[in-house]
Measured scan of single mutants.
Amino acid sequence: NQASVVANQLIPINTALTLVAMRSEVVTPVGIPAEDIPRLVSMQVNRAVPLGTTLMPDMVKGYA
């Protein structure tokens, strides 16, 4: 099972992602792969992401 990126805190809309804001977890459905965490740092989310939410490619500006 592949680990996905999960919000480690509430991430407000247009907030730049940080290492502290993300964690890796095996979840269903699978979201952005955990190995992409370094690439996600400083990218912005295009919606509010609640704690525990799996990050999907369409939630991160410039990711997809």
Rank of each mutant, 00 (worst) to 15 (best):
E35D: 14
R23K: 11
V27M: 05
T54W: 00
G52D: 09
N8H: 06
A21I: 08
N8W: 04
G31F: 03
L17T: 00
N1I: 15
P38K: 11
R47D: 05
S4H: 02
V6P: 01
P29F: 02
V20W: 13
A16C: 12
G62P: 00
Y63T: 04
A64W: 07
L17R: 00
M22A: 02
A16G: 08
Q2Y: 15
Q9P: 03
I13E: 15
Q44I: 13
P38M: 11
V41A: 04
I11F: 02
V41D: 04
V26S: 08
N14D: 14
G62T: 06
A16M: 13
L40P: 01
P50I: 07
P38S: 12
R39V: 11
V5E: 02
S42Q: 11
L55C: 04
S24C: 07
Q44A: 09
P12L: 10
M43S: 04
I13M: 12
P50A: 11
V45K: 02
Q44T: 15
S24Y: 08
P57T: 04
A48Y: 10
Q2C: 10
A7W: 00
T54I: 08
T54M: 02
V45W: 00
A48R: 14
N46M: 10
G31M: 01
A48N: 15
V26F: 13
I11K: 01
N46V: 12
V30C: 14
L51Q: 13
I37A: 05
V60E: 04
P12Y: 07
V30S: 13
V20Y: 13
V41P: 02
Q2W: 12
I11Y: 02
V41Q: 04
N46L: 14
S4R: 01
G31T: 03
V45D: 04
I32R: 01
G62F: 08
V30G: 08
V60P: 01
L51E: 15
Q44Y: 15
D58K: 07
A16W: 12
T15D: 07
Q9G: 05
R39Y: 15
I13L: 13
L55W: 00
N8Q: 07
I11T: 03
G62N: 13
V26Y: 13
Q2H: 11
V30Y: 11
P33V: 06
E35L: 12
V45R: 00
N46K: 09
P33G: 04
N1V: 15
P57S: 08
G62M: 08
M43C: 09
Q2A: 12
Y63K: 05
D36I: 07
A48G: 08
Q2G: 15
A16E: 14
M43E: 04
A7G: 03
R47F: 06
V49L: 07
L17W: 00
A16R: 12
M22R: 00
S24L: 06
I11Q: 01
L55A: 03
I37F: 02
T15E: 10
A7D: 01
N46S: 12
K61D: 13
M56N: 02
M56Q: 12
P29H: 04
V45A: 04
G31W: 00
A48Q: 15
T18D: 06
A48C: 13
T28H: 10
V5W: 00
R23W: 05
P38E: 10
V60S: 04
P29Q: 05
M22L: 13
K61S: 11
L17C: 05
A16T: 11
N8Y: 02
I37T: 05
Y63V: 05
A21F: 14
L40V: 03
T53M: 13
M56S: 06
V60W: 00
T18I: 06
I32F: 02
N46F: 00
P50G: 08
R39M: 14
A64P: 12
P29V: 05
E35Q: 10
L19G: 05
A3P: 11
V49W: 03
N8D: 09
V41S: 03
M59G: 00
L17Q: 00
V49Q: 01
M22I: 08
R47S: 07
A34I: 06
G31I: 02
R39L: 14
L17V: 01
D58S: 10
I37C: 02
I37N: 02
A64T: 15
T28Y: 12
T18G: 05
A34Q: 03
L51W: 10
L10T: 13
N14G: 13
N46C: 09
I32Q: 02
N46R: 09
N8A: 15
A3V: 07
D58F: 14
D58N: 11
T54V: 10
E25T: 07
T53W: 13
T28E: 15
A16N: 10
A48P: 10
T53A: 13
M59E: 02
V30Q: 12
K61Y: 13
N14F: 08
A64L: 13
V27Q: 02
D58T: 11
V5K: 03
G62I: 03
V27G: 03
N8V: 07
V26D: 09
G62A: 08
E25Q: 09
R47P: 04
I32V: 06
A16S: 12
T53D: 10
K61A: 11
V49S: 02
V30I: 14
A21K: 09
A48V: 14
R47I: 14
L40G: 00
N14A: 07
L17H: 03
P38V: 09
N14I: 04
Y63M: 05
A21S: 14
L40T: 00
A34Y: 06
S4W: 00
M43T: 04
I37P: 01
S4V: 01
T15H: 13
L17K: 00
A7I: 06
